[in-house]
Nucleic acid binder design. Structure first.
Lengths: 213, 213
DNA sequence: GTCTATACTTCGATAGAC
DNA sequence: GTCTATCGAAGTATAGAC
């Protein structure tokens, strides 16, 4: 839509996202990114100083977008339970719009955050912070029972990211008839997680605690 | 313990597990594995035909061990709710014994199962199958409400794997004072997930469904 | 079974012309 | 800003002596 945009760092970033998601940082090939983005490799290095810088720029952008979306939900004045539902839906929508993101995120976690500088971590941390704020608001108002906000965050985020990232393996497993997963859609799973999260936070009496570790 | 075990493919596998977990398949260096295992690189290639074969052997062993453990729980004759608790505890224990495993698993998922042949997939599939059997038993007996067994599987497994794999990043975030995670232990989180899974499956009335997507 | 030395390849990055 | 050509490092894998 804008001007011609000759080389377009944006196009490089879009292609790099796919490459990093498919192969990881170490497996990603700068040559391939340049080719797929239809820019000369030297041009890529002109816009982004190195493979690392390119990766950094990508992560910062993604975390920033995700955090902004959750912050919007948190800042609204809906009831806490609705905010939680919307936060889940917002994350699911974000992932649908950026299908490459779960894979990158999972790799980055597995990597121990080796490619996260302080600034990127700061941006990233806004995501759990926004969600935790929603939970805490509900706990304080009495709408939710007391639950560790960051436990709730991991509890709701991990399955969604996992489920989306595992799509290729699920297809493979289904295709090889190794296991029947009962074919349910990502949208179904998001609804499941909304339900699960509501049950997790609900005030009414759950089953009695009974340790068996 | 055993005999002298001069080169010991086991030691190579143990070291390879760490290397693959830390750097991923593409990032792993055969030189480094050989050096850390204190074997000559040519010796490594003598025991394992290639980097791929080494990785395959490792994955099959891990999936096989994990599946066996869950199958033991599923085959016991405890009540379904207890089996679920024990399944969670068993997975947590497995991860504690093999701390490198979550990272490898997350990378493999992100990779789209690029390194999983049919045999490995078959072994892997025994894990969700065992857990699904527990859930289904509970649903049929009326102990649980009807829940998609594989949704429940993802719902309980992903957070545990995530939480463990994210330990380095959590440490980094805490250390840089970017975010206060309220310092809770992995054991606390496992208990949280046992509780959450019980609430997910519990028969008593949860909050009414109310979509907000 | 074990080692040294090295062949062969690929990759990240840059020099330098235009 | 854009390209071609290439350097130097690093990596997988193997040949061949012992």
């Amino acid at each position: 839509m804008g001007r011609p945009a000759r080389v377009s760092p944006d196009r490089i970033l879009a292609v790099a996202a796919l490459e990093f998601a498919e192969r990881g940082f170490a497996g990603a090939r700068v040559d391939r990114i340049a080719r797929r983005a239809k820019v000369n490799k030297a041009m890529l290095y002109y816009h982004f100083k190195s493979k690392q810088h390119l990766y950094h720029a990508l992560l910062r952008r993604m975390f920033s977008l995700a955090a902004a979306r959750l912050q919007t939900v948190a800042a609204s004045n809906a009831p806490p339970a609705d905010k939680v539902d919307r936060a889940l839906a917002g994350i699911a929508a974000f992932i649908e719009e950026h299908a490459f993101f779960p894979a990158i995120m999972m790799r980055e976690i597995a990597e121990g955050g080796a490619h996260l500088d302080r600034e990127t971590l700061q941006t990233l941390s806004a995501v759990p912070r926004a969600f935790a704020a929603i939970v805490q608001e509900g706990v304080i108002s009495g709408a939710f029972r007391p639950v560790h906000p960051f436990f709730a965050y991991f509890n709701m985020l991990a399955p969604i990211v996992f489920f989306q990232a595992a799509a290729p393996i699920r297809r493979e497993i289904t295709h090889l008839h190794v296991l029947d997963l009962g074919g349910a859609s990502p949208a179904d799973f998001v609804r499941h997680m909304q339900d699960a999260t509501r049950r997790l936070l609900a005030r009414d009496a759950g089953p009695a605690r009974k340790s068996t570790s």
